[in-house]
Amino acid sequence: MDFLQLGSYTFSSRLILGTGKFSSSTVMLEAVKASGAQLVTVALRRFNREQLADDLFSPLKALPEITLMPNTSGASTAAEAVRAAHIARELSGSPFIKVEIHPNPQHLMPDPIETYEACRILAKEGFLVMPYIAADPVLAKRLEEVGCASVMPLGSAIGSGQGLATAEMLNIIIRESNIPVIVDAGLRSPSEAALAMEMGCGAVLVNSAVAVSEHPPEMAEAFAEAVAAGRKAFKAGLMPKSSSAIATSPLTAFLGANA
């Protein structure tokens, strides 16, 4: 079997699903089930007694084979992210933490310095650290060296649907990395997820593309199939590219040929 290995955890699904922006918890749960995802992200928020439906913990925990990966969204410093990680672990019992530190809500680009520092601390504390980063091969390598379980470079800006705008940098990160590279953010279509997997990504993380589609469960299933197809193609080995045509049929000894 071909498993995604993150720390001591193995997953048969290589699609990680975010739980934000769904129209309701019910639709979100249907999408999670349809996606086959085994790793699901959640965010920490203050309890609001007027919005009890916001609590996703019980329904998600009730799903078999789901491991929660809380994120540190909302943190703008390493210290805030570390604090959020501690609280999230207390609540989830999961060792996974998606380190997400984006101080500017206009572009949501991750802060590399604060992210590095938070990851260094959390990896040392035994978390399975999954940092959301810009597609920066140097930072990715540094995060591998401090013990992150994966790196999660963005394909394009969060929620933008701009796809794999960083493909060239992603190729370098994948080539250099000894830990799974997970494209996180920016994907819009299943074909982009398939392409990311064909490039050699270990997994993809998708949220908006499923959540704001017209039929989230169907879109979740489409992403799952695309991820599986892309992975299978990567494992099978893509043919080399050529700048000129290479015939697939014999061009000699045709009917009536003189030679």
Partner: peptide, 9 residues
């Protein structure tokens, strides 16, 4: 502070 899990990506 009382915190819960909410939807997030």
């Amino acid at each position: 502070e009382i915190l819960v899990f909410a939807g997030g990506g």
